[in-house]
Simulated assay, not measured.
Amino acid sequence: MAVITYMGEFTKIKLRPMVLNFLCYSIGISMLYVPASALVILPQNIHLKISGDYAISGWRVLSMTNLLPGILSVLILLPMPESPKYYLSVQKTQEALDVLEMCCRYNKGKNVTLKSLGIESVTQSNLRRDSLLPDKNFFRRVWNDTKPLLQGNNARYMLLVIGIMFFMFATGAVLTVWMPRVIKMTEESEESMILCDVLKASGARNTSTVISKCHLATSNLLACIYHGGACLAGFMLISVLLICLNRKPILVGFSVLSTLSGFMLNLVIRDELVIAAFVLLVVPTLCSMRLTLTVIIDVVATHLRSKAVALAMMFGRFGVLVGSIFVGYTLNCCCLVTFNVYVAGMAITILLIFFLPEN
């Protein structure tokens, strides 16, 4: 999440939503990369004995494959400079000037300097003027750094974004886990019925069936690939929409689509429509999360941005916890209640989005 705020501070305000959404393409690509890697590696039945019971299996090779992007990201981030806006926010003017000098040479050529462009100093509005030494007590320091986010306009926007992130995570991240199973169960269903009836019929069929815990069918992996492709397409659609719209109507539109799709799960019975409704309930929320965070990045002061994004994400993850427990306890006994509560949650999200700033 810190990458979003970092990139935002190198980006022109007008272009920030589009650039940060473009950054999110990597999420869709990763959602394709992981199941595609599994689809290639797992069928190879790799088993290289090392010592005793320890062997390099396909699962271990897959884990190492999934580590590669993280290792590469560390190598890419190491030579990158700190944000000049952050340096200015902590009164490190010379360091900010040095970074801008580097950016100037990178963009304009090695022979161009800030001085040759008539720039000898740099500042930004609304800088912190406090010169107090940081508090040595860790917990008091954390509270003092967080307190400004809960005051004035910051508190209003933080509460709005926290609420939106809670419901989006509870919907997108929790129900995503069910997508491969929903696709598989609808394919196995012998007759057309609404999703809750499909789940009930599938549960009745599988009560006496014992499946290996390590069993991962090709259809499950293909479902994950389709899901990743849908998310990538969603991010691309947002990029196109941002050309002519600002982010607020896009967030409203995606949330309305998710709400209506969730409601349609009460009605549609054709297998293709059940899958489409489930996908359109989940994917728009996943694609809207980062766009929502750009609101916080724009309205909160530079030195508070990373904290604000981290706090919003923390409550989003809390939404995953609550949503997972809710689905676990209600899906078998009252399936229709489960999905309609999610519909109600997305309806609340639409209402919260209306209170976000226009620009």
Rank of each mutant, 00 (worst) to 15 (best):
Y6Q: 06
Q151S: 12
N332P: 08
E188L: 11
N45F: 13
Y226D: 00
M236Q: 07
Y226P: 00
S324P: 07
E82T: 09
D298Y: 08
M7N: 11
L356K: 02
V337S: 12
L149S: 05
R128V: 12
K12F: 12
I275L: 02
A2C: 05
P249E: 11
K213M: 06
L39I: 06
E272P: 01
L78N: 02
I296K: 07
M346G: 01
A217L: 04
L311C: 04
I13T: 15
Y6K: 01
K12Y: 14
F169V: 04
T302Q: 05
E120Q: 10
V182K: 07
A277V: 00
P357T: 06
F318H: 07
K307D: 09
V309C: 06
I275T: 00
T338A: 10
Q91T: 04
L251D: 02
Y342I: 00
M346T: 08
V161H: 07
I50T: 03
R105C: 03
V282T: 04
I250G: 06
L311A: 05
A308E: 08
M236I: 09
G262V: 01
T259R: 00
N206I: 04
I325M: 13
L72C: 11
A308I: 14
P43E: 14
S261G: 01
L286I: 09
S57M: 10
N246Q: 14
L20T: 00
S255P: 06
S212T: 04
A276E: 01
L280K: 01
M179T: 15
V182D: 10
L133A: 15
P43V: 07
D197G: 06
L199G: 03
V322Y: 02
C231F: 15
K85H: 12
F10D: 01
C214E: 15
G262N: 03
V283Q: 11
R16E: 09
V320S: 14
L280S: 00
T93W: 12
G328S: 11
F235E: 01
N45A: 11
V3S: 13
F169M: 09
K92I: 02
L260Y: 03
E9T: 03
M193H: 03
T330R: 01
S261I: 00
R105K: 11
C224Y: 04
R205N: 07
D53R: 13
N206D: 08
K110L: 03
F354V: 02
L133S: 15
A230W: 04
V177Q: 14
L100W: 11
P357V: 02
G109S: 02
L356W: 06
M179R: 06
C287I: 14
Y86K: 01
V19N: 02
E191D: 09
M64R: 02
Y6D: 03
T302G: 04
L280G: 00
G172R: 10
T113M: 09
Y86T: 03
L291T: 08
R141P: 00
V256L: 11
L48P: 02
M31N: 10
S192A: 14
L245C: 11
Y226L: 13
V341P: 01
K213Y: 14
G203D: 13
S189T: 08
V309R: 05
P81T: 04
M236A: 14
C244Q: 12
Q44M: 12
N21Q: 10
M102A: 08
S131R: 15
G234F: 05
L232E: 06
C196S: 11
F355T: 05
L97W: 13
L265K: 03
P84Q: 05
I13R: 15
